[in-house]
Design a protein around this nucleic acid. Structure first.
Lengths: 142, 142
DNA sequence: GGCAAAGGTTGAGGTTATCAACTGTTGCCT
DNA sequence: AGGCAACAGTTGATAACCTCAACCTTTGCC
């Protein structure tokens, strides 16, 4: 039984713990999406879009790490709910710029706030730990 | 433009950063699963199972936060590849215990190792930060 | 003008997920 | 003992996501 236990570095431990934390939060994400009448992928799509910066659909596709044809359906859903608009590109008539509507922006704000809500385990940390955690992650992700 | 910027606590910042980190790692998960001939859900299912502790299918369902009928298909796939076996329960003939085969255990080990691989941004942290990160997360998740 | 390449859409095919309905089994309860 | 509600798992219907290949339009280059 010893063979299965490989020595783990502190960082591997940390990474695994973060994985567990996200796994526990997964159902909450699904619930939040449902509360806004969105599927999880639609939620991520809307969250990724920037109301102040319309982008072509292909940009959303790369941001979501998925195929162009996939965002077509995703945007169809968002557009059907009046959260996003397809606007023809100005210089290039091939592209369709994704514009977040006013209502879409409002939903996106509430959405972002809901997703930002911290899991209780982290909230139980001391103030010093909370700050240290942020500082370390900032150093890592810039 | 001020209205959209809500003040964020250090912890919310940290949580958001962790989210970005996981988002960036998502494609890697998909790739890893593919390398083992598994779909992501199958990967998580196999990873969740304990070779030393057979559990009924319903236990896997609750662990995966999904419906019983869903794991039926997942286990079908794993069983077709000889990674998992359905064994009749001893005391209760309704239940089917999920037993990880020898080959399944081997795959699971390699799988776990691959998923444990740390994202480069975290690996770039100082040794002190790495250890502090683990300590804080341990305090949070016990 | 011709043509390769890019942006999006469509359609086919495969997978995941849920729900409702169903079978078989168990255990309680009178 | 018999009856019956509850549980474990499967099946079927349905919907959504995702990818790939094929296609149309537009673009930019030669």
């Amino acid at each position: 039984m010893d063979a299965a236990v490989t020595r783990r570095t502190p960082l591997e431990d940390a990474w695994t713990l973060m994985g567990e934390l996200f796994w526990q939060m997964r159902p909450r994400m699904v619930r939040v999406a449902g509360e806004f009448g969105l599927s999880p992928p639609q939620l991520f799509a809307l969250k990724t879009l920037d109301p102040d910066n319309p982008v072509p659909m292909s940009a959303l596709a790369t941001a979501l790490h998925c195929d162009n044809s996939n965002v077509t359906g995703l945007v169809d859903g968002l557009e059907a709910q009046g959260l996003v608009e397809r606007r023809p590109g100005e210089h290039d008539r091939r592209v369709r710029m994704l514009v977040v509507t006013e209502r879409g922006g409002a939903v996106r704000d509430r959405l972002t706030a809901a997703m930002q809500e911290v899991p209780p385990q982290l909230a139980a940390l001391s103030a010093a730990d909370q700050q240290a955690l942020r500082d370390i992650l900032r150093r890592a992700l810039g």
